[in-house]
Design a binder for these strands. Structure first.
Lengths: 233, 233
DNA sequence: CAGTGGTCTAGACCACAGG
DNA sequence: CTGTGGTCTAGACCACTGG
């Protein structure tokens, strides 16, 4: 059984993938344990572990101590979207980035905002609205609320030339966050900003970031009609 | 410098995160190499490697041989969406799953479809359209094209009780795929199926999966108005 | 060329959870 | 209780790439 051709974890992984694909190991069924596979593949158990762990992370295997390793019955595809600064996103596509601040103010937010951000309902937050452009056409409308208690330095910024998107990523650390993707109909105001028809379907991203137990910022991004977020599986 | 309190890779990772967060190590700057950190933390280099590699995968560090490890200048947040069988998705939310096939036929697809799937323009494909329901209300409309050359067994299925979504995941292996998220306006037909107003903004997922160099299936999912895909950062 | 991360190894101990 | 994966270690060699 000793097969000396699997010398690194990538080749072990490929062989495991091949067997799953060829239905040698079928969904829901156990595969041999790490020690046996190491023996068969002629490598150290650590190497097998690395290969299998990686496949488990991507959702193709289900591993449990003592219970062993199974081929996932319902393979969970993980679509990973890279969320970067919008300027970089546009420049990476070879387009010219443009930015225009629309509004900046310290405002008491709607209850929906203060509720989500868990700030006092009567406390003003920094509110910045801006348009990101690609090759001089509207790309995304950013509507953002910033918690000045957590980011006091943010109050000193005008956000006229550097977007809040970019400034915050550089200056406001966060520990975790939530992100939601949805579709919304353009209001007439949003249509005016994005130069599209009212009620156009807009891909929408809502993000809420935290630093420990405090909310840093809440942002809604509305993309131009037709915009797609793509990734591979 | 020997600090015996970092005994496992998770605690090393936490300490590294702490230093980045506390601006001890700042974006764009080099951090010590693995050997030095291992010395400082009082653990093996392998352990440091594991911690740093994991942070690099999540986009917080930038590692290059010889050049060393830097804190990422533009931290790339990775939003990972789990794409599962729709039935499971609904049941996991504690709702009752319902399914209704709308149409099944072997049809020559529009050029947009055969073009994307790289099949012959005149060759019929299996076309299945169906509605997924949660607690008896429309949840998602699935419009799918299946390549019978790659999945011949799929022709024998009626998809009346088991959705193509679920049948394919179980019986048709794939090697890779593309996925795109967008927003579209409901046509009057789609509005009728999803029981919503015409031109409602619908979150849309287009998926194209491959087995080697052949296209397995192309599917468009239109979700009920207001539907959100959520994840953490 | 030489410094860095990338990986492999053999062996060891441990944590968890199935039976 | 015991089999399984999870991890750590010390040491080694390798691959890449910056200077």
């Amino acid at each position: 059984m000793n097969n000396p051709s699997f010398r690194n974890w990538q080749s072990v992984q490929e062989e495991v993938l091949r067997r799953i694909h060829a239905r040698v190991w079928t969904p829901g069924n156990l595969i041999p344990n790490e020690a046996d596979l190491a023996l068969e593949f002629g490598c150290a158990r650590t190497t097998v572990n690395r290969a299998l762990r990686s496949l488990a992370e991507s959702g193709l295997l289900d591993r449990r101590r003592k219970a062993g390793t199974r081929v996932a019955a319902q393979p969970v595809a993980k679509a990973t979207l890279d969320i970067t600064v919008i300027r970089i996103e546009i420049e990476d596509r070879g387009q010219k980035y443009g930015y225009q601040r629309i509004e900046r103010g310290e405002t008491v937010p709607p209850l929906a905002i203060s509720g989500a951000m868990k700030t006092h309902a009567t406390r003003p937050l920094l509110h910045v609205r801006a348009l990101h452009m690609a090759d001089d056409t509207p790309y995304a409308f950013e509507d953002r609320w910033i918690n000045p208690e957590v980011v006091p330095k943010g109050l000193a910024e005008s956000y006229e030339t550097v977007s809040a998107n970019e400034w915050l990523l550089k200056h406001a650390p966060y520990t975790h966050g939530e992100i939601a993707f949805s579709a919304t109909s353009a209001t007439s105001e949003e249509a005016g900003i994005l130069c599209c028809n009212k009620n156009s379907a807009l891909l929408t991203i809502d993000r809420l970031t935290w630093d420990g137990s405090s909310t840093v910022t809440k942002v809604r991004l509305l993309f131009e009609p037709g915009h797609q977020l793509r990734t591979n599986l």
